[in-house]
């Protein structure tokens, strides 16, 4: 079924590195995945695994000294044409029409994602004016509409307020309103609920789901929270040290994880069936320093099933391990 749908966004072998005096950090090291229209792709991993840099690479807003070194990011536009975002210049007109127009982005920090000296409205209206041919009045009306659509009460008043006058939940809603104001076909949500309390988290996730149903928009959800992924995602990509270690449908991944890292991740969340008063298993060791990437499979120093003489020498390729799923591990030939 999936084979006859063209992916909205197709990332192939993406490599993004940061070049510093101390050394080069390969933040994203050959990641490949697809995002399909109207579906939600969850990207999971510990902090520092390159999830956020992947999102920034797609929009071509990686901060210096970071740079995309290799790979392609093919976006299918509304008219059916395809463009490779990697080939565009970082400040070109084309990529700017993609940012905010085709792809919207929301961030983890609703507090600092708004300018402290501009009103929420100024920031929404700016985006509307930029991406659609409307006048200032119409843009303002659309801004108010966007705020209303994300469930902000009294949007005609809120639009003239500053972000520091809003509560955390409202701020994140406003953030979503800015991202949605130009009807993007893909919304990248980078840890959208991490900074919020649990109740607000659930509301924001509900909101995202509702908007997705209304508009048929694709969502790329970046998070370290497996619960959020289980609830929201259709497909899952698991990343470790800049590499995709496993990908597949959400049910497959959660019920039958293949890669030892995915298994370890899933074991470390408490479940209703787990024995009470037993210490949760943790993944031994910690993420290696980016300058000291292990040779071979990046996970082998922490892996319980590492094969000596193989995992620490060769790098396992990402290959099919079943119907519509892939993993990069020597346990699955």
């Amino acid at each position: 079924m999936r084979n006859d749908t063209r992916p909205l966004l197709s990332v192939r072998n993406l490599r993004t590195s940061f070049f510093q005096d101390e050394g080069t950090t390969k933040a994203v090291d050959g990641a490949s995945f697809d995002v399909f229209p109207g579906k939600t792709l969850g990207i999971v991993g510990e902090s520092g695994c390159g999830k956020s840099v992947t999102a920034q690479s797609i929009l071509r807003i990686v901060d210096r000294p970071g740079r995309i070194v290799d790979g392609e990011i093919v976006l299918t536009r509304a008219d059916g044409s395809e463009i490779d975002l990697v080939k565009l210049k970082a400040n070109s007109r084309e990529i700017r029409s993609v940012r905010g127009g085709d792809i919207g982005l929301i961030f983890q920090e609703p507090m600092t994602s708004f300018s402290p000296v501009h009103t929420v409205g100024e920031q929404i209206i700016e985006a509307v004016l930029l991406h659609s041919e409307v006048g200032k009045k119409e843009a303002r009306l659309r801004g108010i509409e966007a705020l209303r659509s994300v469930g902000i009460p009294k949007p005609e008043r809120r639009i003239d307020e500053y972000s520091f006058e809003l509560s955390g939940g409202l701020r994140q809603r406003a953030m979503i309103a800015v991202a949605l104001s130009c009807n993007p076909r893909l919304l990248i949500a980078d840890e959208p609920t991490t900074a919020l309390d649990v109740t607000t988290q659930a509301q924001i996730l509900d909101l995202l789901r509702k908007i997705q149903q209304e508009r048929g928009m694709a969502i790329m959800l970046i998070t370290h929270n497996l619960g959020v992924v289980a609830e929201m995602a259709d497909d899952v990509v698991v990343m470790y040290l800049g590499k995709v270690v496993e990908q597949g449908k959400v049910d497959d991944i959660f019920h039958d994880p293949k890669h030892p890292y995915t298994k370890a991740l899933l074991q470390s969340i408490p479940s209703i069936d787990s024995t009470p008063r037993l210490k949760l298993p943790t993944i031994s060791g910690s993420i290696p320093h980016p300058f000291n990437r292990p040779k071979g499979c990046p996970f082998h120093p922490r892996c319980v099933s590492a094969i000596a003489g193989r995992c620490d020498v060769e790098e396992p390729p990402l290959q099919a391990v079943g119907e519509g799923r892939k993993a990069s591990c020597f346990l699955y030939p």
Binding site: G285, S286, I287, P288, H289, N292, P294, K295, P301
Partner: peptide, 10 residues
């Protein structure tokens, strides 16, 4: 940098 990582044999 001294305590940031468990480095492999350097």
């Amino acid at each position: 940098a001294a305590h940031a990582a468990v480095p492999p044999p350097a």
